[in-house]
């Protein structure tokens, strides 16, 4: 199953990158969201998938899933959330100020 999830995460990366390589800002934003999903899935898979109970200590249970990647993902999710929100506002403001959502038109010249 880990292999399948890895493939899934890989596909998320691929679609994310394909979206990021588009011109339209909206697609790029979608791409970044996919990217973080892919990354989190990778972290998740790199622990052991489903070899035990949730890592909440319960008497009599000795077999738990790996808690560390979960902790890392939690941190990462929150951070991505912060970045995504900023990105959305920035994307919005940029579009309004520059009157375009086409990244190819947001190149700029030399002396500005």
């Amino acid at each position: 199953m880990e292999i399948i999830i890895s493939v899934l995460a890989g596909i998320l990366f691929a679609t994310a990158i394909y979206n990021i390589l588009q011109k339209q800002l909206l697609r790029i934003v979608i791409g970044t969201a996919l990217l973080s999903h892919g990354a989190h899935l990778f972290i998740f898979t790199m622990g052991k998938l489903k070899t035990g109970q949730p890592p909440v200590l319960t008497e009599g249970v000795t077999d738990y899933t790996d808690p560390l990647p979960q902790a890392l993902i939690l941190t990462s999710i929150v951070i991505s959330f912060g970045v995504t929100s900023l990105l959305l506002v920035l994307a919005y403001r940029t579009t309004k100020e520059n009157n375009t959502d086409n990244m190819e038109q947001l190149r700029g010249g030399e002396n500005e």
Partner: peptide, 21 residues
């Protein structure tokens, strides 16, 4: 500024995600 910030943010966001992975 907004324009360049956006590019800056996007590229760094990508590399951050690559970093965690």
């Amino acid at each position: 500024q907004l324009r360049e910030s956006l590019k800056y943010l996007l590229i760094n966001l990508f590399s951050s995600m690559l970093f965690v992975t």
